[in-house]
């Protein structure tokens, strides 16, 4: 029997009180994850404080599957910074480096041009039709820190949803059958 038998026995022996307490602990896990995420949004000022690199356009600096930590402060944007931006008409944000900055004297508005380190040309081909510059409102944050490989988890889960369901099922079973 071993592991499987024990698991089945423990499911059979569930009582109402135990079920309730496990639901509560599962709820605690979910809400604490939510709290951490929202707190990060508050601290960093960026609407998505952590992003996963999806393309190889910044190699060898950032590879596919790396995680970037973003920060959005009121500091002006300067050349050389790695920014995450959204282009009108594109859903997926892009992580590239700023190569040109023109900052207005009267309004403080900026015109920014970006380029991927591993790309040959600048990003004007990626921008919306006829768009020459990015403005402040396109930019979601600048990359300040970096963690390799961890993002593969999310890439695999979005590309192979079946693995996500298996993982969720296994975790759920683990929570239900745990005896604390």
């Amino acid at each position: 029997m071993g592991f499987v038998g024990e698991t089945i026995d423990s499911i059979k022996s569930i009582q109402i009180r135990q079920l309730l307490s496990q639901t509560v602990s599962l709820g605690m896990i979910v809400t604490s994850a939510l709290i951490i995420w929202k707190a990060l949004i508050c601290i960093t000022g960026s609407e998505s404080p952590v992003v996963v690199v999806l393309s190889g356009s910044m190699e060898p600096g950032f590879k596919r599957g790396d995680i970037l930590f973003l920060h959005m402060s009121d500091d002006p944007i300067r050349a050389g910074e790695i920014v995450v931006f959204n282009v009108d008409g594109r859903e997926i944000p892009i992580v590239h480096r700023v190569i040109k900055v023109h900052e207005r004297k009267d309004t403080g508005e900026v015109d920014v041009l970006t380029k991927g380190d591993n790309n040959y040309g600048d990003d004007r081909l990626l921008y919306a039709q006829g768009q020459l510059w990015l403005q402040r409102h396109h930019i979601m944050g600048r990359a300040v820190g970096f963690l390799p490989y961890v993002g593969w988890v999310t890439i695999i889960m979005t590309e192979k949803p079946i693995i996500k369901y298996i993982l969720l099922g296994a975790l759920g079973l683990l929570v239900i059958t745990s005896k604390d």
Partner: peptide, 29 residues
């Protein structure tokens, strides 16, 4: 892991308080 180095030209014009243009860049592995 690497150092990204670039040379930028920086100047001021009547319209813009800062103009920054990267002239050359390179990756030092």
């Amino acid at each position: 892991k690497q150092v990204f180095v670039f040379l930028a030209i920086e100047y001021e014009t009547p319209m813009n308080s800062l103009n920054q243009i990267s002239l050359w860049d390179g990756i030092i592995p």
